[in-house]
Design a protein around this nucleic acid. Structure first.
Lengths: 123, 123
DNA sequence: ATTATTGTATTAAGTGCTTAATACAATAAT
DNA sequence: ATTATTGTATTAAGCACTTAATACAATAAT
């Protein structure tokens, strides 16, 4: 895993987001076991407390389940993951479109730019 | 102006971004005068020091020009604004597409979702 | 000439984030 | 039975961000 941690906002927030993405994309499959807090912290070159803080949010969202002495696992419930994924996607798209509109781009313009960039990414 | 200031990242960063958007969209036209630091700070319900900090970044990017005792103005150079706008747009799009891909969406899927949402926004 | 306004700088205080160093209880592993 | 591993909690320190309260020099406005 390539952790991308910038200093322009809290690290634990970024960790939460990136772990969430790994759950959505199946890097951590349903029901699979997460590494220990200490191991994940070391992997991300971060203090255990910070990683702990990052994981709490995912528990609140029921994406992961904590077993006091045997670690954490990803939820077995596919619906929970799917719903969270859809919710995040819509949030992303909305935020993106709003920002582009604030910049002064027309809607048709936005779509055409995206089409162009997607084509470029496929190369 | 409706300032949207959240507590999940530095306020001065958010101010910089939002003022930049106002320049891009023409809320502050080329060559126009910005309100004083104190006035802008009050408008955004923020400390003058924080607004000051937000403006420094825009000066570094040559989007605004500071006149020591008569305030600040937007650059007269349309190219500077246009280039910054294009640069930000590409950055936004790239970040968006990357995140959607990390979530596991296919490229065709992304385009179709966007088309749907843009149509909805037009209503 | 006087006053008001401009950007800028400084200091002190409070807050949240991050790290480091520990420690504890529960339980899995041996 | 003993040891190792688990999540969790605490304390102290350093740091950046934010606010509040001032202050200053330059110059625009009167």
């Amino acid at each position: 895993m390539a952790w991308e941690l910038k200093s322009d906002r809290p690290i634990y927030t970024q960790l939460t987001e990136q772990i969430e993405l790994m759950i959505f994309s199946g890097v951590y499959p349903l029901g699979s076991k997460l590494p220990s807090v200490r191991d994940m912290a070391q992997e991300a070159a971060v203090n255990p407390n910070t990683m702990q803080k990052a994981l709490v949010k995912l528990e609140e969202d029921s994406l992961i389940i904590t077993h006091r002495t045997s670690g954490r696992t990803i939820t077995e419930d596919a619906r929970i993951v799917e719903m969270a994924k859809t919710k995040l996607a819509q949030k992303q798209i909305l935020a993106f479109l709003e920002k582009m509109q604030l910049m002064g781009f027309e809607q048709k313009e936005i779509i055409s730019i995206i089409n162009t960039m997607v084509e470029e990414m496929q190369k």
